[in-house]
Amino acid sequence: MKKKILFGTLIGIAAVGSIIFAADHIDAPAVTGTGNVSLGTDITDVYAFQSPADNNNMVFVINTQGLLSPSASATAKFPENTLYELNIDNTGDNVEDMVIQLLVRNGKVRAYGPVAPAAPGTGSIVVANAPYAEASVTSYASGSPVVGTSTKGVKVFAGPRDDPFFFDLKRFKEIIAGTATKFHDGTAEDPATDAFAGTNVMSLVVEVPKSMLGSASSINVWAESKSK
C-alpha cells in the first residue's frame, strides 16, 4: 500500500517528464536548445573540494554543455558572450562576498579573482583589475591539459573532459513513467546503466589557495552563467 502511494506520487512528478532529471543538465527551458541540447550557458554540475594534490588549496569545477558525444566534443566551444561566475559566501548569508569570474576569448580562458564583486546578484560586470590566471583552452585533440597559473597561485583549466557525473537516468525515467517500480540491482542478472558513460562536458576548473577565501571555517558556493 505504501509503495502504491509512493508510486502514484512519482507519477505525479512526471509533469516534468520532458526535462531530463540529472545533476543540473538541461534543468530549465532557458538553457535548453532545440532537440534537448545543452547550451553553452547550461551548467551541468558544480564541485568544491580540497585539492588532492595540496591540502592548502580548494578546487572548484563548473561543468557545462552536458551529454556531448566525442564528435560533438571536438567542435564544442565556450560561448564568448558568456561569463561563468563562481560565487563564494564566507559570512553565511548566502550572498556572494567573493567571485571568481571566468571568460573565454580567442581560445584563451581567464579566471579573475577571487575578488569582491562590483555588486552581488544576477547582473555582473567583470572585475577586470583583479589578478587573473590565464591559459589556452585545451583542445579536444590535445593529449595533455593546458594549465595556467596566476602570480597569486591560482590555477585555471578550460576544455572538454569526461563528465564525472554518473546516474542510471534511463531507469529513473522508467520509474517516473510508471513502467518500473524500482532501480536495477546492479548485478549481472539486473545490471544498471550509467547514462553519462562515454559522454563529455566543457569544464572550467580553478584551484585556489585557501588563504584567498577568507578566515571562515566553511563557505557556501554556487556557480552562475551570465550572458550579454
Binding site: A30, I43, T82, E85, G123, F165, S225, S227
Partner: peptide, 11 residues
C-alpha cells in the same frame, strides 16, 4: 553587463 542564465549549487 552579463545577465544571469543558469545557476547551481547542489546537484
Amino acid at each position: 553587463v552579463f545577465t544571469q542564465q543558469d545557476q547551481m549549487g547542489r546537484p
